Amino acid sequence: MSESTQASVAASVRDVISAHTQAQDAGQTDETVALYAPDAVLEIPGFDPITGHDALREAFKGWAPTQPQKHLVANTVITSWTEDEATAVSDVAFFQRGESGWAVQVVGRYEDTLRRYDGTWLIHHRTTTYIV
């Protein structure tokens, strides 16, 4: 794979992860779900695996923000890639704004597998872990 292809894959992966964060924090359920493959799996501690667009839509509706929130995703490292699949690891801190201001609620990590479907990169599998 050429350097330009590697750079393109890395940029595409980071764009999807960033778009997911922005849409989720804005409470844009349909936009969030559209970033997942139709058969995608989302694993989050305390929940059974969430599989497919319908289940993802219900989950993200239930998690819609009721107060200002931000997922700050950083340190994304692309751990493997081809022209059609990539894996990445990212650190995440989840903040909410309450009466006392912004406060960190959760710190964790995303482990993502993304695939290209008809030229569009989508999340195929995401595992979230929390750091305690």
Rank of each mutant, 00 (worst) to 15 (best):
D15R: 15
I17H: 03
S18N: 14
T21M: 14
Q22R: 15
A23C: 10
Q24L: 07
Q24T: 08
Q28V: 02
D30P: 08
E31V: 09
T32Y: 04
T32R: 06
T32G: 04
V33W: 02
V33G: 03
A37G: 12
A37E: 12
P38R: 10
D39V: 03
A40I: 07
V41H: 00
V41P: 07
E43D: 09
P45S: 03
F47I: 03
D48T: 13
D48F: 11
P49S: 02
I50Y: 07
T51F: 10
G52S: 00
A55G: 04
A55D: 03
L56D: 07
E58V: 15
E58N: 14
F60W: 09
F60D: 00
F60G: 05
G62T: 01
A64H: 08
T66F: 04
Q67K: 06
P68R: 08
H71F: 09
L72P: 09
A74W: 11
T76W: 03
V77M: 12
T79I: 12
T79P: 12
S80D: 15
S80W: 12
T82E: 03
D84M: 00
D84N: 13
E85I: 10
E85R: 14
A86W: 00
A88R: 02
V89I: 13
S90G: 00
A93G: 02
F94D: 01
F95H: 08
E99G: 09
S100C: 06
S100L: 11
G101R: 03
W102Y: 01
Q105E: 09
V106K: 13
G108N: 05
G108E: 08
R109T: 13
Y110R: 07
Y110Q: 06
Y110D: 03
E111G: 09
D112C: 00
T113R: 15
L114D: 10
R115Q: 14
R115S: 13
Y117K: 02
D118C: 02
